[in-house]
C-alpha cells in the first residue's frame, strides 16, 4: 500500500518536473567556443569581460560594515564608491550592447546569411537589454547599488545572449574569412 502511494506521489512529482522542462523548451544550441572568442576579440566587450559584476551589486560587505556603529561612515563611503563603480559597469555593458548590435549589422551588410527572424530576434534582444540596463542605471542612481543585487546576473546574461547570437552568425562564415572580417570591422570603426 505504501509502495503504491509513494509511486502515485513520485509519478506526480516527475510529471511536473518534466512539464517544467517542457515549458522551458529545448536549450538553444551554444555557438562554437572559437566563434564566441572571436566576437569578444573583435568587438572588445569590456562590460562582459568584467567578472565581478555580481559582487559589485552584492550588499553583504556593506551590511557587515553598517552593522557596526563605528563603521557607519565607512559603510556610507563604501556604498558611494560602489554606486559609482556600478554605474561605470552598467555604462560599459550598454556600450557592449551598442557594439554588438553594430557588429551584427556589419556582419549582415558584409553578406553573412541571416533570416528576417534572426534580425527581429536580435533587434528585440538589443532593445530589451538597453531598456533593462537603463532601468538598472536609474535604480542604482535613485536607490543605491544594492537595491537590485540579483540584477547583475540578468544584465550580464542579456549581453551574453547578444554576444552568442553574433557568434552564431559569424560561425556561418568559413574560419579563414574571419581575419578579413576583423580588419574591415576595425577599418569601419576608425
Amino acid at each position: 500500500m505504501i509502495q503504491i502511494l509513494s509511486l502515485v506521489l513520485l509519478g506526480a512529482i516527475l510529471f511536473f518536473v518534466f512539464l517544467k522542462i517542457a515549458i522551458q523548451g529545448p536549450s538553444a544550441s551554444a555557438p562554437d567556443s572559437s566563434a564566441v572568442l572571436a566576437v569578444r576579440q573583435m568587438v572588445h566587450l569590456d562590460g562582459l569581460s568584467f567578472a565581478g559584476g555580481q559582487r559589485l551589486l552584492d550588499d553583504r560587505e556593506f551590511q557587515m560594515l553598517n552593522a557596526t556603529a563605528e563603521l557607519r561612515e565607512v559603510a556610507a563611503l563604501y556604498r558611494k564608491e560602489r554606486q559609482a563603480l556600478a554605474l561605470v559597469w552598467i555604462s560599459l555593458l550598454l556600450g557592449d550592447v551598442h557594439g554588438l548590435w553594430r557588429f551584427r549589422r556589419f556582419l549582415v551588410r558584409s553578406g553573412v546569411p541571416a533570416t528576417l527572424h534572426d534580425e527581429i530576434q536580435i533587434l528585440s534582444d538589443a532593445l530589451q537589454a538597453m531598456v533593462f540596463l537603463s532601468f538598472l542605471r536609474v535604480i542604482v542612481l535613485t536607490f543605491g547599488p544594492f537595491a537590485f543585487s540579483g540584477a547583475a546576473r540578468n544584465a550580464q546574461g542579456m549581453v551574453e545572449k547578444m554576444s552568442n547570437a553574433s557568434a552564431h552568425v559569424l560561425d556561418r562564415l568559413p574560419r579563414h574569412g574571419w581575419p578579413e572580417i576583423e580588419r574591415n570591422w576595425h577599418k569601419g570603426l576608425a
Binding site: 500500500m1 503504491i4 502511494l5 509511486l7 502515485v8 513520485l10 509519478g11 506526480a12 512529482i13 516527475l14 510529471f15 518536473v17 518534466f18 512539464l19 522542462i21 517542457a22
Partner: peptide, 20 residues
C-alpha cells in the same frame, strides 16, 4: 526524451491510482 518522460511519469501515477 521530454515527451516520453511526461508520458511515463503520468502512467506511473495513473496506474498506481487505478490499483488503489
Amino acid at each position: 526524451a521530454v515527451a516520453f518522460g511526461m508520458y511515463s511519469s503520468l502512467t506511473t501515477a495513473a496506474s498506481a491510482v487505478t490499483d488503489l
